[in-house]
Computed example of a mutant assay.
Amino acid sequence: MSDIKITIIDRQGVEHQVDAPTDMNMNLMEVVRSYELAAEGTIGICGGMAMCASCQCYILSDHELPALSYDEDLMLAEAFHVKENSRLGCQIFIKEELAGLRVALAPEA
């Protein structure tokens, strides 16, 4: 098992450094849910299908991420609180090259 450290700033502005497994095919939204960093029922409402934007986050580090998929781009075009560094957490899969990633959860819509 190989874990990486990532930093997640919750919706109250509290910073959490967490261990995220790289060998479980988890995405960032699932990591946030597993550490209960967002209130129950407020993140991952669509189950990680890029259909609700409840897992929107802001990428604060300079990590190179995969390009936006068509569905992610479409969803962010309709979401609230979108910034240039917005991504959907359900579309960011935990991989070793994301060690040190820093993200902040977007406000609830």
Results as ranks from 00 to 15, higher is better:
D73M: 03
M26V: 01
L37E: 13
M49W: 02
I4Y: 07
L28N: 03
S69G: 03
L98D: 07
V18D: 08
M51P: 00
Q17G: 04
G47D: 06
G44R: 00
V103A: 07
E36N: 14
I43S: 09
M1R: 09
G41D: 10
Y70T: 14
S2Y: 03
V31C: 07
L65R: 07
S2A: 05
L88R: 10
E30W: 12
P66M: 03
N85T: 15
T22S: 08
A109P: 15
V82N: 00
E72F: 14
L68K: 12
V32E: 06
E78T: 06
L98P: 04
R33C: 14
G48L: 01
N85K: 11
Q17N: 06
A20N: 03
K83L: 15
D10T: 05
S2C: 02
K83Q: 15
G100L: 11
Y58A: 06
N27E: 06
M51D: 08
T22K: 09
H63L: 00
A99L: 09
K95N: 07
I45W: 02
S61D: 04
F93K: 12
C55K: 03
V31W: 01
E64K: 15
G44A: 03
M29H: 07
G44L: 01
V32F: 05
Q17R: 11
E84K: 13
Y35H: 12
K95G: 08
C55H: 01
I92C: 05
L37I: 05
G47P: 09
C46I: 11
A77T: 10
A53M: 04
T7G: 00
L88T: 02
E108C: 09
M24I: 08
Q56L: 01
H63K: 11
Y58H: 08
Y35R: 13
P66T: 06
H81A: 11
M24G: 02
R87H: 13
D23F: 02
V18P: 11
M26I: 02
A109R: 13
M26W: 12
L88V: 12
P21A: 11
I45K: 06
V103M: 13
